[in-house]
């Protein structure tokens, strides 16, 4: 029975709505607090699980226990990258941005971050550039970008 034809309203009405949360506040967590303190000092931490170091530091190692936090020093390399031509709302960027997964040679995993370079290729050696110490908040954007070494 074609009830949907029978019932056609003069027009289908629509109602606007929006997310009524002003903001979310995310705590770093027990583990993340150490990472945050390290970022403020210009260090990047990894979690040591057995013989393997994971970056970013995994909350839990594969054995379901928190790992030991250790500093990773690199050198960092580009694992994969993409070039962003438009902003989220579809505006064309004047200068395309490079977003890459970068990984230190001494660890597994990798960070996703901006790379500032004229040319980028997989395997390219890069290093982090931090904000001035006074502006750091312990979040991932304390690292401004990675640049070629």
């Amino acid at each position: 029975m074609s009830w949907w034809k029978e019932n056609v309203a003069s027009r289908i009405r629509h109602y606007p709505g929006k997310m009524e949360v002003e903001k979310y506040v995310y705590t770093p967590g027990v583990h993340g607090l150490e990472q945050a303190k390290a970022l403020k000092e210009g260090k990047i931490l990894g979690a040591k699980c057995g013989d393997t170091i994971y970056v970013p530091p995994l909350t839990l190692c594969p054995d379901h226990k928190p790992g030991e936090l250790v500093e990773v020093r690199g050198p960092w390399r580009v694992v994969t990258y993409t070039i962003i031509a438009e902003t989220m709302d579809g505006r064309r960027l004047e200068k395309p941005e490079v977003i890459a997964v970068v990984k230190p040679d001494d660890a597994e995993g990798g960070l996703i971050h901006r790379v500032e370079a004229d040319q980028v290729y997989i395997g390219m050696e890069v290093e982090p550039v931090f904000k001035p110490e006074a502006e750091r908040k312990g979040t991932i954007d304390d690292i401004l970008y990675f640049k070629p070494k």
Partner: peptide, 16 residues
């Protein structure tokens, strides 16, 4: 009311 732990850390503490 509010805790330092991330949601997954809370889950881990109870699960462990």
């Amino acid at each position: 009311r509010r805790m330092l732990e991330t949601p997954r850390e809370l889950a881990w503490e109870a699960a462990s």
